[in-house]
């Protein structure tokens, strides 16, 4: 027992903020990043990466801490940032980029308006891609259309890019897919591909990249979001036959431009927001951060606040009939 208390004292002392020596707002304060997922996932890993480097670029060098607030695919965290957290610049959050679509399709439980959030930006863009196992004989999109046997696409479930992206391709681009949802995670789908239970999957490029490098799968189709190294792949919207299909695909993929969004509560003072925006922008150019990001396979591609807001507005601009139509094809979920 005594050892434990000694350890606690020791460890607690590490976290107690140091003496103040200046007049900066963040001097001696703690900046909390609320992450809408449990530790270990992509959103958490990005947040922890920035946690390490942000203090360098915020005057007053505050302590940065991560709080995991999982649940409802980060709607809980976004609600918290929107209406519970104080707009004092000491609490910011990161949540699913697909929340824009949740707001558009009026998902039950959404109590935020993303256009009113104080945006910081996004630390990375990512594009959904469709990848098939390397030994699948179909080489072109046309082969996928004309395939005699349907191509089995493993997926987690409606609402995720593993499901919605191939489902739209099947519906509007006429690809001969058979969708098999029910895998417990996107990496489980990868295993299913390896054991030939599935032939391919949709999903974010960054998460599939290690398996492309290993030679297990090859990328076939991308979305409108431009990501280095896969620029030449055919784009889903060009494959869709109807205008409606193109429009729905565009709405689905636009939020991917701000794949790892960061925002503060509405009403956070402008000068504080400037500090935060600058800090994120500078940190994402930091050499050490970039080196570490490269090692941990977390691509960095900062999108500034103004551009992030534009993305949000573009998605939410849909007329009500269109929003209604979208609900039929895209669900918000895990």
């Amino acid at each position: 027992m005594r050892q434990l208390t000694a350890l606690l004292f020791f460890l607690a002392s590490l976290w107690i903020p140091g003496f103040s020596h200046g007049a900066a707002y963040y001097e001696g304060k703690t900046l909390t990043i609320v992450v809408g997922y449990k530790p270990g996932g992509g959103y958490d890993r990005y947040a922890r990466l920035f946690q390490k480097f942000l203090p360098r670029y915020i005057p007053g060098n505050p302590t940065v801490v991560i709080q995991n607030m999982p649940g409802a695919n980060s709607i809980i965290a976004a609600n918290h940032i929107y209406s519970v957290a104080k707009p004092d610049g000491l609490t910011i959050g990161t949540f699913n980029n697909g929340l824009v679509i949740a707001q558009l399709t009026k998902v039950e439980g959404v109590r935020f308006d993303l256009t009113k959030m104080a945006w910081i930006g996004s630390t990375a863009s990512d594009a959904a891609i469709l990848a098939v196992r390397a030994d699948v004989p179909h080489k072109t999109v046309d082969d996928l259309r004309k395939a005699k046997e349907p191509i089995v696409i493993g997926a987690t479930g409606p609402g995720s890019s593993t499901y919605d992206f191939p489902a739209l391709l099947k519906e509007f681009a006429g690809l001969n897919f058979k969708l098999v949802p029910g895998y417990s995670s996107s990496s489980d789908v990868m295993l299913a591909i390896e054991r030939k239970e599935a032939d391919g999957r949709g999903g974010s490029y960054a998460s599939i990249l290690p398996f492309i490098e290993r030679g297990l799968v090859r990328p076939m189709i991308r979305t409108r979001v431009v990501v280095p190294e896969i620029e030449k792949l055919p784009v889903d919207e060009d494959l869709a036959a109807s205008a409606k299909g193109k429009a729905i695909m565009a709405v689905r993929s636009t939020p991917e431009i701000i794949y790892r969004p960061y925002a503060a509560p509405p009403g956070t003072p402008a000068e504080t927001m400037k500090i935060l925006r600058d800090a994120f922008a500078k940190a994402s150019r930091d050499k050490d951060l970039l080196a570490e990001a490269k090692k941990t396979k977390l691509p960095i591609d900062f999108v500034a606040a103004e551009d992030a807001v534009k993305v949000v507005q573009e998605v939410l601009r849909q007329p009500p009939e269109m929003a209604q139509e979208i609900t039929k094809y895209i669900k918000f979920g895990d």
């Binding site: 409802a72 695919n73 809980i76 479930g157």
Partner: peptide
């Protein structure tokens, strides 16, 4: 929680907490 086949919220009673 949310079912992976149809995306229906089962027995969640409108609570975000129960989605997963």
């Amino acid at each position: 929680g949310q079912d992976p086949q149809a995306g229906v919220q089962r027995f969640t009673f409108g609570q975000l907490y129960l989605w997963g």
